[in-house]
Simulated scan of single mutants.
Amino acid sequence: MSMPNDNELQLLEDELRQPLSKLLTGTVTSQDTARLLRILQPEFEQLKQICEDERYGQRAAGTPRRPTLLRLIRSQLSSYSKAYWIASLFVFVMLLIVLPTHDGVTAHSVGALFTFVLPALLLASLAYSFRSWNKEMRMIETITPYPPALLLIVRTMIVISLNLLYGIAGSIYMTVQVASFPVLPFMLEWMSLLLLVSGIAAYALMWKGFKTAIAFAGAFWISWNGFTQRIITIDNFAYDQNTFILQIASVVAGLLLLAMAYKRSYGTKLLP
């Protein structure tokens, strides 16, 4: 077959110029993305079922495999990079290094460090978790079999659980390092604030979105630490019945807010 000459190429370009010009498109908009997702949704569902069948074996006809919360948690855990786990562990190790472990150390002197660092680490982890949470990503998440808001609350629960584990590990560390260390007052001090800040952040996230959650939780954390530093100093702090009741009430309030946020996640429209 002979190669086309310049005249033939020019003629071909002239013939194709008009039909090809109709194929040119402008900038992709969010409406285009939403329309594409609606078109592809049936294909996604079919591919998902095929992958499930290949992984877990063929199931009986007419019994589709239901998504579970455990699978969602596992998938969200894998979304965190190694750098995040290493960085959070590094912060916790640095906290353990600066903790006072001499004889006679009080629960409040150590707890003051934990009530400052753990909520700060929580807020920083939340900011890392939702660093890519924009309008386009929320559109992509709507094609998952889970409510999109549930994805966010699961990420929040993962971060909260990690900080709780760090707090418990720190409590065990202090018990080993310091003889007769008052571990119960110490755990209640950092856990009451951490759970309350977590509950506020989670509920505000489902109520008004990520920015409001960070603002509310951060303001409460700063106010709490400022109040305790001004009113309750290390020298005159006394672990009495009123302190115990306040800390228990904070733990209960934090858990209730977390439960309400989890329940709300099934019917919440995502907000910026």
Results as ranks from 00 to 15, higher is better:
residue 3 M to D: 09
residue 11 L to Q: 15
residue 12 L to I: 13
residue 15 E to A: 13
residue 21 S to H: 14
residue 25 T to L: 12
residue 29 T to I: 08
residue 35 R to Y: 06
residue 37 L to F: 04
residue 41 Q to R: 15
residue 42 P to Y: 03
residue 42 P to V: 04
residue 46 Q to N: 08
residue 46 Q to T: 09
residue 48 K to G: 14
residue 50 I to K: 14
residue 61 A to I: 07
residue 61 A to R: 10
residue 62 G to F: 02
residue 63 T to F: 08
residue 65 R to P: 00
residue 68 T to M: 08
residue 70 L to H: 13
residue 71 R to E: 13
residue 74 R to M: 07
residue 77 L to A: 05
residue 79 S to T: 09
residue 80 Y to L: 03
residue 81 S to N: 04
residue 81 S to C: 02
residue 84 Y to V: 11
residue 87 A to Y: 00
residue 94 M to C: 13
residue 96 L to K: 06
residue 100 P to T: 01
residue 101 T to E: 06
residue 104 G to K: 11
residue 104 G to R: 08
residue 108 H to S: 03
residue 110 V to S: 15
residue 112 A to L: 15
residue 114 F to I: 10
residue 114 F to P: 07
residue 115 T to D: 00
residue 119 P to W: 04
residue 122 L to P: 03
residue 122 L to E: 02
residue 125 S to W: 02
residue 125 S to E: 07
residue 125 S to Y: 04
residue 126 L to D: 07
residue 132 S to Q: 13
residue 134 N to I: 02
residue 135 K to C: 00
residue 137 M to F: 14
residue 137 M to W: 10
residue 137 M to N: 15
residue 139 M to T: 03
residue 142 T to C: 05
residue 143 I to D: 01
residue 144 T to M: 12
residue 147 P to A: 15
residue 154 V to S: 07
residue 155 R to V: 04
residue 164 L to C: 14
residue 165 L to K: 08
residue 168 I to R: 12
residue 169 A to F: 10
residue 175 T to D: 01
residue 177 Q to S: 10
residue 179 A to D: 13
residue 180 S to I: 10
residue 186 F to S: 01
residue 186 F to L: 04
residue 187 M to P: 06
residue 189 E to T: 15
residue 189 E to C: 11
residue 192 S to C: 04
residue 196 L to V: 05
residue 201 A to Y: 09
residue 203 Y to G: 01
residue 204 A to W: 03
residue 206 M to I: 10
residue 206 M to G: 10
residue 208 K to G: 08
residue 209 G to R: 06
residue 211 K to M: 08
residue 213 A to T: 03
residue 218 G to I: 02
residue 226 G to K: 09
residue 228 T to Y: 12
residue 230 R to W: 10
residue 231 I to V: 13
residue 232 I to L: 12
residue 233 T to P: 07
residue 236 N to Q: 11
residue 240 D to H: 12
residue 242 N to H: 09
residue 250 S to N: 04
residue 250 S to I: 00
residue 257 L to D: 01
residue 260 M to C: 09
residue 269 K to Q: 06
residue 271 L to Q: 15
residue 272 P to C: 07
